[in-house]
C-alpha cells in the first residue's frame, strides 16, 4: 500500500504574541512545529502500513526550514519525505496550495501508484480546512472528510469503509481507492518514535522539489498569482467600550452580591426571566 501524508509546518500558536500597538505578529523565538492535527493523519497512515505493509510518503510545501517538520515525521516511522519548496509558491491561498500539492502527488504517483492520501482536519494557522477537499477534487480522488474511524480496507477489492463525523451523528461511507481522507483529531494517539527510526530520520535525505520537479504545468496557478483571495486588511479586535460592572466579594457580602447581580441581569434583559421561568415550567 502506498500512502501520501500531507503536513504543514506552522508556528506554535500557543506561543504567538501580537504586538499590542502595531498589531503585528511577533514570530521571534516562536518554534515551528508539525501542524498538530496532521499527526492524527500520520498515525492513522502508519497503522495501515503496519497492517498492510508498503510505504508512507510525507509531503510538505513550505520554506526550506520545513525540512525539520518532515524529519520529525520520519522519526515516527514514515518511509520517505518530499519538501516542495520554491519562491514561486510564496503567497499561496488554498486554491494555489491544492494545485501545487496535487501536482506533486501526481509526480509521486509516477514512482509508485498512490492508494490513499491523508491530510489533517485543518491547520492551526490558516485554519481553513479547504486544502484536503481541494487536492481531492484536483486529483479526482474520492473525498472522505472528518473521518473518525477507518472501519475496513480491502486492498484486493480496492474498497475502503469509514465513519465520517457529520452534524448530529456519524455517516458510514463506503468507497473505492484511491481516496483522500482528512482525519479528525483525537481519533488515535501518536506512537513513540523508536531509536531506530530516530537514527534513520537523522540520516535520511529529505528530497527537495522545486516547481519543475513537482511537475507544475501552469505557473499562473501557483503562489500569489494563482490565489484568487486577497488579504485587504489586518487589524486588532475592537476593545469593548464600556467597562464591566464589578463587585468584590467578601465572606459577609456574598449573599448581597448575588442578589444584586440577579436583579441587574433580569432588569437589563427584559425577556430572560420570563423565558427561563417558561423553560423550567415546561
Amino acid at each position: 500500500m502506498h500512502i501520501v501524508v500531507c503536513i504543514k509546518q506552522v508556528p506554535d500558536s500557543a506561543q504567538i504574541r501580537v504586538h499590542p500597538v502595531t498589531n503585528t505578529i511577533m514570530r521571534q523565538g516562536v518554534p515551528a512545529i508539525v501542524n498538530p492535527y496532521d499527526l492524527f493523519a500520520l498515525e492513522e497512515a502508519l497503522r495501515l502500513k503496519d497492517q498492510f505493509g508498503g510505504r508512507v510518503t510525507m509531503l510538505c510545501m513550505g520554506p526550506p526550514q520545513a525540512e525539520d517538520a518532515l524529519r520529525k515525521c520520519l522519526s515516527f516511522g514514515a518511509t520517505d519525505a518530499i519538501l516542495v519548496t520554491d519562491r514561486a509558491f510564496a503567497g499561496a491561498d488554498t486554491l494555489a496550495t491544492s494545485y501545487a500539492l496535487a501536482a506533486a502527488i501526481r509526480k509521486i504517483g509516477q514512482e509508485q501508484a498512490v492508494d490513499l492520501v491523508f491530510t489533517g482536519k485543518q491547520t492551526i494557522d490558516g485554519d481553513t480546512a479547504q486544502v484536503g477537499p481541494g487536492v481531492a477534487k484536483r486529483l479526482g480522488l474520492n473525498l472522505l472528510t472528518y473521518v473518525s474511524r477507518i472501519v475496513e480496507v480491502d486492498l484486493d477489492a480496492r474498497r475502503i469503509q469509514v465513519e465520517r463525523r457529520a452534524e448530529g451523528g456519524v455517516q458510514l461511507l463506503d468507497t473505492t481507492l484511491p481516496s483522500l481522507i482528512t482525519m479528525l483529531e483525537g481519533t488515535n494517539e501518536m506512537r513513540f518514535a523508536t531509536m531506530e527510526d530516530m537514527l534513520r530520520a537523522a540520516r535520511c535525505t529529505v528530497r527537495k522539489w522545486n516547481k519543475d520537479d513537482a511537475g507544475i504545468e501552469d505557473i499562473t496557478k501557483i503562489g500569489l498569482k494563482g490565489s484568487p483571495t486577497i488579504v485587504s486588511k489586518v487589524f486588532g479586535p475592537k476593545p469593548r467600550s464600556e467597562k464591566a460592572d464589578m463587585q468584590v466579594v467578601s465572606d459577609s457580602s456574598v449573599n448581597d452580591v448575588c442578589l444584586n447581580l440577579i436583579q441587574k441581569i433580569f432588569t437589563t434583559h427584559s425577556t430572560l426571566e420570563e423565558e427561563t421561568v417558561e423553560r423550567l415550567s415546561a
Binding site: 486554491l95 481553513t128 480546512a129 479547504q130 477537499p133 477534487k137 473525498l143 472528510t145 465520517r164
Partner: peptide, 23 residues
C-alpha cells in the same frame, strides 16, 4: 462552516477555481 458546508465549499470552490474565505 459545518462538516457538510466545509466539505462542499472546498470542493465547489476548487471546481469553479474561485476564492473561498473560511470561518
Amino acid at each position: 462552516a459545518t462538516t457538510m458546508g466545509r466539505d462542499l465549499a472546498g470542493s465547489v470552490a476548487t471546481t469553479l477555481a474561485t476564492g473561498l474565505t473560511a470561518d
